[in-house]
Simulated scan of single mutants.
Amino acid sequence: MTVLGAVSLPQLPPERLRDLARAADDAGLEELWLWEDCFWGSGVATASAVLGWTGRLRVGVGLLPVPLRNVALAAMEIATLHRLFPGRATVGVGHGVQDWMAQVGAQVESPVTLLREHLTVLRALLDGEEVTVDGRYVRLDAVKLDWPPSTPSPIFAGATGPRSLRLCGEAADGTILTGGTTTDEVRAARRLVDEGRAAAGRVDPHPMVVYLLTATGPDAAGRVAAQLRREGRDPVAGGVAGDARTVADAVRRWADAGATTVVLQPTGDEPDPEAFVRFVAQEVRPLVP
C-alpha cells in the first residue's frame, strides 16, 4: 500500500502549526512532513510539538542539514523523539542547501564525505554503541547515548545527485526525494539507490519518500506551473493540479515509478493549509490503493 502524507510548509507561522496538526490528525492523515529550511524554524522543535498535540499522526522531518548539526546532538534529539513518541517519527538528514550552508559558515569541501561520516556515526549512536572516531569532519571521543531509542530507529537521507543517492542506498534506511521530482527521475533515483544497496550488501527494504507538488481549486494548474518554473523544474511533469481523482491518479504514477510514500506538497501560495490536509486525507486517500 502506498503511504500518503502532506507537507506543512515552513513558511507557515509556528503559532498556526497546532491548528494544522490537529486538522490533519482529526482528518485521519497518515503522515505530516516538516522541513528544516533556513531560516524558517527548527525541524525537531516543530516535530516534537506536533507529536505532542496529536494522538496518532506520524511525523516526518525531511530533512536536518548535517553541516548545521553535530552528530552527537542529532543523535540525542532523534533518540528523544523516538523514546517520547515510539513509532511515530521519521527523521531524515542531508547535505542542506549549499548557499544556506555557506551563509552560516558551515559549508564543507566534500558534502558527500560529511554525509557518509554522519550517517555511519549516527547509526552507531542510535544503536546504543560507544563511538570514537576521527574522520575528516566527524570527530567523537568515547560518545555513547544514555537514552538511545528503545526500538529500532530508521534513518532516512535526502539526496538528488548520483553519488549521494548511491550513498543513501549504502548507509541510510530510506531515501527522501525533493518536490518537483518527475516519475522518470524517481525511477533513476531508485536504480542509483539500489546500486548503493547492492554495493553494501544490503537486502533490507528501502522506503523511498517523494514530495509531489500539488494544488487543487481555482487556478491550481497555474499555481503549480509557476512554482515549478521558479524552481527551474519541469512545469508539466513535476507536479499535479486538479480534483481528488486527478491527484490520486498522479500518486499512483509516482508510486509505480518507485516511491513507497508520496507526500503532497502544497504550493507556497496555498490559501488554506488546513483544507489542504483534509483534502489529502479525506478525498485523495480513499482513491489511492
Rank of each mutant, 00 (worst) to 15 (best):
L140E: 03
G179D: 03
A198Q: 06
T175N: 03
G161W: 09
G5D: 01
A75T: 05
G135T: 09
A198H: 12
G174N: 06
L125T: 01
R223N: 09
V236I: 14
L4N: 00
A27E: 10
Y137F: 15
R18K: 11
V121H: 08
R245W: 09
D272H: 13
R245D: 10
W147D: 13
Q98Y: 12
I176S: 00
D194F: 10
V236D: 14
V288E: 04
E129Q: 15
C168F: 01
A23V: 12
L140M: 09
G169A: 04
P86Y: 15
E231I: 01
P148E: 12
A47T: 04
W254F: 15
P67T: 06
P13K: 09
P289C: 01
G158I: 02
R116Q: 05
V59Q: 03
S153P: 03
T46Y: 08
F279W: 13
D26I: 08
L20C: 07
D234M: 10
T120Y: 01
V280L: 03
T182Q: 08
T182P: 01
G238V: 11
D127W: 03
T261V: 08
L126C: 07
D234S: 13
R22D: 03
T178V: 11
I176E: 00
A200D: 11
E109D: 15
V91Y: 06
H206P: 06
V240L: 00
A250D: 08
S8Y: 05
A106R: 15
S48P: 00
H95D: 03
E77V: 12
L212H: 01
V209W: 08
A248R: 01
A23L: 09
G222K: 13
V247P: 01
Q282M: 11
L73D: 04
G43M: 02
